[in-house]
Design a protein around this nucleic acid. Structure first.
Lengths: 237, 237
DNA sequence: GCGATGCTACGGCCACGGCCGAAGCATCGT
DNA sequence: ACGATGCTTCGGCCGTGGCCGTAGCATCGC
């Protein structure tokens, strides 16, 4: 069976620590230069170059040359989903041998971060809880849906999603649940999650922290999340 | 960041051809013995034993001793989803270098097969199309839902799903869409897909083909799929 | 009890692949 | 035009890990 060979090839690409570091750094959906990726991977530029070429050729990364820089990003949302799925399994693994001291940077990641195109961590889960509590979304392990009330609510916030993601013939707007690796609970992903996240950035409610996936809630955002969603403090862990 | 190390470890486990063959053989949800898995992997028993021990320790496989046999199976649906996600990315890769002669066995797999606990391939997609056409389910890339009419329809067929999977407070029954690697289109997975698949086996509409994931449609099944779902012939490729 | 079967543990062989130094091209700045 | 920067290619070193032969332990059949 030829298909398991392809399975092994793709998995082996992710299975190298240096490449895994690169992919992890790209999971927030941004594009990074080869040098930056060499830095996060902890390898020399020429080593990183080889890794990036392989990842691009395999269709995991897309590359855009711009001046003398080359920007690499995840080739598709499917790649991000794959990485999520692997991390979910890895996280579920018996942790016996790995107490893992979670440093301060890790704490920031757990509090609030982006996950390719949507929000995750404590903030992401709190938003999902608030939306669920008010009947705006319904989530389960198998899927999720944005209710009519939820659609109206988000429209009121100025959140817009392209019509491409909604099923033809006036069906429902689905929102993909994404299992959070730190919270172990689902949060809102898919087109709805991406649009909501984008709006939060536009409104200045959150901003990126240094050069990582972690995001910080601004003072304005703190007010907004409290008044709009009823979120006071969200669990940092 | 410690999390990318776990990502790499898990991916590396899948990234070996022998182990990938084993995992692929287990994707239909059955449990196989160590010897059988050594056979599909094409390695000696002692080599397979080492691989299986590593996969089990990492939480990818569950093992049950029974007499002098040891039965290995996927540890959770999450592992199956991870493998699906990797195969989806691998399948989307530029195929330039790989014309891949699809043998007769491959053709049977493409026509109809199980995917952990539900139906995939030509039959799975045809069922999803029929259910969608009649308004019984709605599917999109981000999620899916079983309509009230669909729930009644499946109840009439004797399909039963446990209440655990349905969200609390009388919400909708979701059905997870699973991107088919051969058809490149979504089919019905999740709790609904699993229950429907189980019912098809119970009714004798389909049966397993030799020792693979492929299934054959019985004469009775051919009649049933035509009369109940309006499926005449489903695409073999 | 005895051999056969299924599985696992150990040891050594070997090769695939990651790593960097050196060198070669592009592009940008002045 | 010149050097500096960013990226890639090539070549060789070396360690990790897959592989099987041999051996050891449990279970089954008679």
């Amino acid at each position: 069976m030829a298909t398991t060979a392809a399975l092994a090839e793709t998995a082996a690409l992710v299975g190298d620590p240096a490449r895994a570091n690169m992919l992890g750094a790209l999971m927030d959906g941004r594009a990074l230069t080869a040098s930056e990726l060499a830095g996060v991977a902890g390898v020399a530029p020429q080593t990183a170059s080889g890794h990036l070429a392989r990842l691009a050729q395999a269709g995991l990364l897309a590359v855009a040359s711009q001046g003398r820089h080359r920007y690499y990003r995840l080739a598709s949302p499917g790649v991000a989903r794959m990485l999520e799925a692997i991390m979910a399994v890895a996280e579920a693994a018996p942790r016996a041998v790995r107490p893992v001291v979670t440093g301060p940077r890790d704490a920031a990641l757990r509090a609030a971060r982006t996950c390719y195109d949507h929000l995750a961590g404590g903030l992401g889960v709190a938003l999902a809880d608030a939306l669920t509590e008010r009947g705006h979304v319904e989530l389960s392990a198998d899927g999720g849906v944005l209710t009519d009330a939820g659609a109206a609510f988000l429209r009121g916030l100025g959140v817009t999603f392209d019509g491409a993601a909604r099923p033809r013939r006036g069906g429902r707007v689905f929102c993909r649940p994404c299992l959070d690796w730190s919270e172990r609970r689902p949060h809102v992903a898919g087109a709805v999650g991406a649009a909501l996240c984008a709006r939060c950035f536009e409104n200045g409610w959150i901003r990126r922290l240094d050069g990582t996936r972690a995001v910080a809630v601004t003072p304005a955002g703190r007010l907004a999340f409290r008044s709009v969603f009823g979120i006071g403090a969200f669990s940092p862990g």
